[in-house]
Each structure stands twice: as structure tokens, then as C-alpha cells.
Design a protein around this nucleic acid. Sequence first.
DNA 1: CCTCCTATTGAAAATGATATTCATTTAGCT
DNA 2: AGCTAAATGAATATCATTTTCAATAGGAGG
Lengths: 148, 148
Amino acid sequence: MQLEELKSKFEQFLRQKGYKVTKGRFEIIDKIASYGPHFEIEELVRWIANQDRSIASRSTVYRTVRLLQEFGAIREVIKLGNRTIYEFVAGKPHHEHLICVECGKIIEFYKEEIEELQDKVCEEHDFTPLNHRLEIFGVCSECKGKKT
Amino acid sequence: MQLEELKSKFEQFLRQKGYKVTKGRFEIIDKIASYGPHFEIEELVRWIANQDRSIASRSTVYRTVRLLQEFGAIREVIKLGNRTIYEFVAGKPHHEHLICVECGKIIEFYKEEIEELQDKVCEEHDFTPLNHRLEIFGVCSECKGKKT
DNA sequence: CCTCCTATTGAAAATGATATTCATTTAGCT
DNA sequence: AGCTAAATGAATATCATTTTCAATAGGAGG
């Protein structure tokens, strides 16, 4: 199972960094994995609390999400207003997002040519890219239908 | 002068929306225009206060920036942590941003082909794009030099 | 020019996400 | 088992942004 592999890689990461391998951290990973690909921390905290009050405090969830970002298993997808939506990457390949402003649905896509053009732009500016984010806001097919 | 034109368009906008044409709003536009293309609101508030204590309160600056966003003269460029960087668009054509993670410099670029590919992706997903944002984080040429 | 109504303003307080503090607990080494 | 540093939980702090509310000022009609 992919999740187990991720967890064992995360364990290696923790040891290598001199961090401790705690039960709580792995419980949070399980919860995130079963929650779904996209989440907000506050939402996640509430969801975890509803399911099992003994898992982790709000602070620990925040701290663990930061740790998982450092590890690379979680990425920030969008910031809208004061909301931050994260995604559980878990080795998923790089991709960009279409975001429906009506229903909030997030559609993932990947376009090799866009990536190449970005590299070209960076070269032209003698800029060394580390990471990037392309977000397209609009209306998804379902919501278009609804708007009679 | 372009700025005067913008202000007169903004005045039209205000009247059309039934908003009031106040001195404060135009003073804020002047300040933003002379501040530079990219700014954070808190930074701007401090800067305005330093220059002329009588211009506008923090609340009014926030409110006016929102109004100018609605009008289209200001756009949100990036959200990093809890910071939001805006840009004074003022009729400037659409473009994307390279952001240096070392010095914070923002470089603007435009690549027609990337825009076209985005439209293509949207079509493929039957998604109607409203707006988009491409941010590339990395190290600019100057900062690369410094890192001996 | 005056009056009235409503939008705007300023200051302070509220909000909401996230970070931090600090005392207590626990992982992991010896 | 015992020690030490890191992790945890709860409460508190922080910081940008929004809201509230009382005072003020546009601007339409007279």
C-alpha cells in the first residue's frame, strides 16, 4: 500500500532530521489520507475531533501539517481570503488547478507544454525556478448547467 | 496623464454604483500611484501615515483597496503566509509574476503561448475561465550572484 | 444655500487563521 | 530504568483584515 510506504519514508525523514517518531504524527497522516485530497486545517481539526477526540490537538495538527509540508507530502494549493487549502500530495505528480468559484470544486490538470514555456521564461530572465503555482479560477461544467 | 484618466474612470464607476465621490478615495489613489507598483496594505498604511497623518485611517485604506479591486485598478498578486501583496494595475496589460524568494523582488512577464494553452486546458474540461494567476518562485539573477 | 437621508469615515473592538508559550508528557539513547 | 531533549495540549498571543457604531460629510431635492 502506498500510504504505508509514505509513512515509512516519513519515519526516515523524521529520524534523519532528529525529530521524534510519535504515534500522533502517524495518526494525523491516516486522518488526512482518509479525509480526501484537499482540505483546510480548521476543517480537518473539526473532522478529526468529531471522529476521535483523542487524536490530536489543534496545535499538533497545525504543527504536523507544517512538518508534512517540509517533508513534501502536503502542498499549499490556494489561498483565498483568509482560507488556505492544502492538498495531500503523497507522491502524486506535479499538477495545476482549476478552481470553480461557484462550488469550490478543484480540478487538477497537467500540461507539459506549459511547464516547458515556464522554464523558457525563467531562462530569459536568468531566474532559477524552485516551484510554481498556476491557478485558474472560473466556472465548472456542472455549475454552468445550474445557472439557467 | 494616465492617472487622471484612471481617476475620472473611477469617479464614473462610483457614481454608477451609487457610491460617493469622496476626497479620501482619490487621495489614496494618489498615494498608491506614487508608492510603486507592488504593495502590502499594512506597509502602505504606515507609509501614508508617515507622509501625511491626515489622509486616511487604516480602515479607509482597506476599504478603498477593496473598492479599487472591484473597479479593477488593483489586483491581488500573491499571498505568502499571512501577507498579501497587491499590485496597482492601472490599465497595465495582463501578466504573470516571477517572485524571488531571497529578496522578494517581483518580475513581471507575459507569454502568449501559456495563455493559449490555458484556454485549451479549460476547453478540455468544459471550464469557463474567469481569471488566473501563475506564480513562479525562485532565485533572481542578482541573488544568485550573492550566494557565493 | 439649506435640509435630509444615506454612505463614508475613524477608532476601537471583533474575527479568524495560525503561531507561540509553558508546563507536562513521552521518545529514544545509555 | 533513568535522563534529556523534543512533542504535546491548552491557553494565550499575533497579525491581517473586517466589522461595529457613533460622528461626519456627499449630494439630491427643495
